[in-house]
Design a binder for these strands. Structure first.
Lengths: 237, 237
DNA sequence: CATGTCATTTTGTGATCACAAAATCTGCAA
DNA sequence: TTGCAGATTTTGTGATCACAAAATGACATG
């Protein structure tokens, strides 16, 4: 089973802000691949991820994978257990409650900071993304839905060019996304509601408090479905 | 210049939650050492840190250092520049503003969550720490002050046993601590004021809103001095 | 069939190597 | 002295190795 370390592998989008040139290129690809996998729910909570496994899967040596796993563990997107094993953390009611609270504190704030930097072109982009989201909801494509929902929110947040709040929110999304996926796999996507259209309208009208309300409401709506499931899971088997 | 990799080196406190046993022991030590160094201001913003340098300084191989630097970079405690060089990020007015805002949003919340888990013994510990802080302020020992101030806040926060908010706040402290140190080195510690006694009183009386106010006020007080300096630095040379 | 024990395999970890890019130093010329 | 081109050193990166701990599977025993 000799690894080749040659296949460039597909680089599925991913928010890589690493060095675009040669320095740390492989690490950047690995980071983008795993991040994207977490955000779209391709990693199952509780499932262990192995260095060598990911390495051969991505066609690279174990070295960059080791570094990326440490990075993601530092962002609490992955969990390093006492035996050194790395796994996607399981969701607990306490964790869920904290993530929800943190999102409600940070995301409306950052959205407001981005508000006056969002152009008409951004509104068009957001509208386009939201249309695709609606299509995914009816078609039931959970993976595409998650990717697009992330894109919608972070297209807003990224406009703030924040160096502090944005990474914190990034960390939060990495923490709840894998759990989201398992829920959608169970209850489907048809029940999903969002307040994206309210957000877009608030951006058009440059209304800060309306945007805050839309983001808050969207978070509450989106996490509401998840909350019921986590409680069901925690009490039952 | 053959490295020995034998000296255990002093392990200055540090909040290591790594595996206490054998697995990843060296990485845990390195992580604790660098973290502690950042929090007490032993690393200067803008100054580059090298893997081999830290490795030989800590008496370990470059390998665990590499992983720890990636970890800290993921927490925005360190910055990986486009040439691969790792350095302590410089503070900017924008960054400072965001850190302050984020602290005001998250820390009072977590303090309140910790309130009902704080015992009389914790109050005694906090009082003891605060006494030592007062001593450091008059004696002008900035490094000890920073270490104790961190200990005071995180003794409160840690009582919440939070898995989400606490790491976010951890990241924030790692980001502003190095800059704090440079300011204290310039203006001294005599002008420092805090609201630790108000916080202790709020904890004793189990008064949530009083505790929130004390934490908020403490953050504002503490960052106020820094804010003036960052503006002075940004406009001047 | 259940259970504990032992051999085998897998896995994380620390160390080391080789290479290229970047930084630093040196020395020469204007 | 200043500026620049070349050599030299430093540094990050990816790969590989060796080892111990852990997980897994096989198997004998009750």
């Amino acid at each position: 089973m000799a690894a080749r370390y040659s296949a460039p592998t597909n680089n599925p989008a991913g928010n890589v802000q690493e060095q675009p040139s040669t320095r740390g290129a492989t690490r950047g690809q690995v980071d983008a691949a795993i991040r994207s996998g977490l955000l779209t729910g391709r990693f199952i909570p509780g499932k262990a991820v192995t260095i060598r496994g990911l390495a051969s899967e991505l066609g690279v040596s174990p070295m960059p994978v080791r570094e990326v796993l440490q990075r993601l563990a530092a962002e609490n997107a992955l969990e390093v257990k006492s035996n050194g094993r790395v796994q996607v953390p399981d969701m607990t009611p306490e964790r869920f409650d904290e993530v929800l609270k943190a999102r409600l504190l940070l995301e409306p704030e950052l959205a407001e900071r981005a508000l006056y930097r969002l152009s008409k072109q951004d509104v068009r982009t957001l509208t386009k993304i939201d249309d695709e989201i609606d299509a995914c909801i009816v078609s039931g494509d959970a993976e595409a839905y998650m990717q697009l929902n992330h894109a919608f929110h972070f297209h807003i947040y990224a406009a703030s060019s924040s160096k502090v709040l944005l990474p914190l929110i990034d960390s939060l999304w990495l923490q709840f996304a894998p759990f989201m996926r398992t829920v959608y796999g169970r209850v489907g996507t048809v029940n999903l509601v969002d307040q994206h259209k309210e957000a877009i309208r608030a951006i058009e009208q440059k209304d800060p408090s309306a945007l805050r309300d839309a983001i808050s409401g969207d978070i509450t709506d989106g996490m509401g479905i998840l909350g019921k499931e986590i409680l069901k899971n925690a009490t039952g088997g």
